[in-house]
Amino acid sequence: MRKDEKNNIPTPASSEHEINSQLQQWVNLYAADLYRRAYYLTSHRETAEDLVQETFLAATQQFGQYEGKSAPKTWLQGILNHKVADYFRLRFRQKPSQDIDPSANDTYFTESGAWRTEALPAKWDDSPENLLDVPEFGRVFEECLEHLPATWHDVLLLKFIESKKSEEICQSLGITTTNYWQIIHRAKLQMRHCLEQLWFQRR
């Protein structure tokens, strides 16, 4: 790999051989971290592995676009984020119907839209933000995330992974914005309830 004389930054490689040796180095340096990230987002080992493989294959193809402005790891993480988002979208589109009837099987609200007694939000002694550094809370939080139906989980995470506007996310998922809010609403209601049950009411 050639280096820029002044900054010691790798210049875009030209030959296939150079690309391969650079990529091999990056695989050795970053594959493990990328895998942890992919596993955290998908909770599935084989999927995580596939996504990291695809990330490196895409990196090979896009190598010419890498200008060295960001650290290689950051660049690779950006590609991985796109791969995870694609995976979420594919999984979402493969489900036959994503419509949520707002009144059907509603465990949180009565027919008229009032809180059900057993679902009333209780007072929390502490704010989740103050618990960020408590490892046990982090694990409960992850557990609750994993309990969400897969598509709700994916839709909830998509906006953080890609930081796109709601309209773009809806378009890429093939759903209406109304449906999108409905899913986010359901996912958050369940998250809140789960945290209350597994953390705040056990303290």
Binding site: R36, Y39, L132, E142
Partner: peptide, 28 residues
């Protein structure tokens, strides 16, 4: 608050600061 925790967890995880209970997932 949940929104903020989620956002920060995803970010910290990207920087690999998340503590895993027991074994962290390891590449085959």
């Amino acid at each position: 608050a949940i929104e903020k925790v989620l956002e920060r967890q995803l970010k910290e995880q990207e920087e690999n600061e998340v503590n895993y209970e027991g074994e962290p997932p390891v590449l085959p």
